[in-house]
C-alpha cells in the first residue's frame, strides 16, 4: 500500500529533511500534517499523497496545450473595430504597435507586459521547472521555489487583456458610428491563461525540494 503513493524508487528519493522521509504527509487542501498511515486527510478528507503522481507530466502536457493555443491567440484578431463603416481587425501585438505609434507608451507597456511578457514568461518558467526536476543534476538553489511562487502569483494577471476587451466590447456599441466586436483570439487567449494557471497549480513543489543539494 505504501509504495502506491510513493514516486518512482520509493522512500529513497525523498530529501532527508522532508516530511515524507519522516513518515508525514501534508494535505494540499487544508495544509494539515498527518502520519503517512492515513489514506485521507482526517480534517478535510482529501486523498493524501506524498507527492502528486505524474505532476510534471500533467503540468507539461497542459503547458504544451497552452503553447499551441497561444498561436491562434496571436495570429487571429482579438478585437474588430467598426468605425463609420471602416473595419479594423487588431491582434494582440497589433494593439501594442498601435499605441506605440500614437506615442501612448504607458498603455503600450501595460498591454505588452500583460499579454506578451507574462504569458510567455510564465510558460518558460513552468517549462524550466519541469526540466529542472527531471534532469539528473541536483538543484543547487532554493530560488526555484521562488520562481514557482512568482509564476503562480502572476498567472491571473494576463487575464487583464481579456477583461479590457470585455469592457470595450460592452461599452463601445454606438451602432454604425463606432462599435467593437470580439475576435476569436479572445477565446484562445483566455484558454491560454486558464491552462497555464492549471498547469502551474498541478506542479508539485515538493519534488523541487527532494532534489535540493545539501548546503
Amino acid at each position: 500500500m505504501q509504495n502506491k503513493r510513493m514516486p518512482q524508487g520509493g522512500k529513497a528519493c525523498f530529501h532527508p529533511d522532508s516530511a515524507a522521509a519522516q513518515g508525514l504527509l501534508n494535505c494540499l487542501v487544508c495544509h494539515e500534517l498527518v502520519g503517512d498511515h492515513e489514506k485521507r486527510c482526517p480534517r478535510c478528507s482529501t486523498k493524501l499523497r506524498a507527492r502528486v503522481n505524474n505532476s510534471t507530466q500533467i503540468s507539461f502536457s497542459l503547458l504544451l496545450t497552452a503553447l499551441f493555443l497561444y498561436i491562434p491567440a496571436n495570429v487571429y484578431p482579438i478585437m474588430i473595430t467598426d468605425m463609420l463603416g471602416d473595419r479594423t481587425q487588431s491582434t494582440i501585438i497589433g494593439g501594442v504597435i498601435l499605441f506605440l505609434e500614437s506615442e501612448s507608451y504607458f498603455i503600450a507597456a501595460v498591454i505588452f507586459i500583460a499579454s506578451i511578457i507574462v504569458p510567455v514568461g510564465k510558460m518558460a518558467a513552468i517549462a524550466w521547472l519541469c526540466y529542472s526536476v527531471n534532469r539528473k543534476k541536483p538543484i543547487r538553489k532554493a530560488e526555484l521555489t521562488q520562481v514557482y511562487r512568482i509564476t503562480e502569483f502572476i498567472g491571473k494577471w494576463s487575464m487583464v487583456d481579456v477583461f479590457v476587451v470585455a469592457i470595450l466590447v460592452a461599452l463601445i456599441q454606438l451602432g454604425g458610428l463606432m462599435s467593437i466586436q470580439v475576435g476569436i483570439a479572445a477565446s484562445a487567449f483566455a484558454g491560454v491563461v486558464i491552462l497555464t494557471m492549471v498547469s502551474a497549480h498541478q506542479f508539485d513543489t515538493r519534488i523541487l525540494w527532494d532534489k535540493m543539494e545539501d548546503e
Binding site: 487542501v29 498567472g155 487583464v160 487583456d161 477583461f163 497549480h201
Partner: peptide
C-alpha cells in the same frame, strides 16, 4: 468542511483586482 474546501479551490480564480486594472487600461485606451 465542504465550504472550506470550496474556498481553497476558488481562491486562485477570483480576479477582482485584475478586473479593476483591466477597467483602468480600457479607460485609458478610450
Amino acid at each position: 468542511i465542504g465550504l472550506g474546501k470550496v474556498i481553497s479551490h476558488i481562491l486562485p480564480w477570483s480576479m477582482a483586482e485584475v478586473f479593476l486594472i483591466g477597467v483602468l487600461v480600457a479607460l485609458i485606451k478610450i
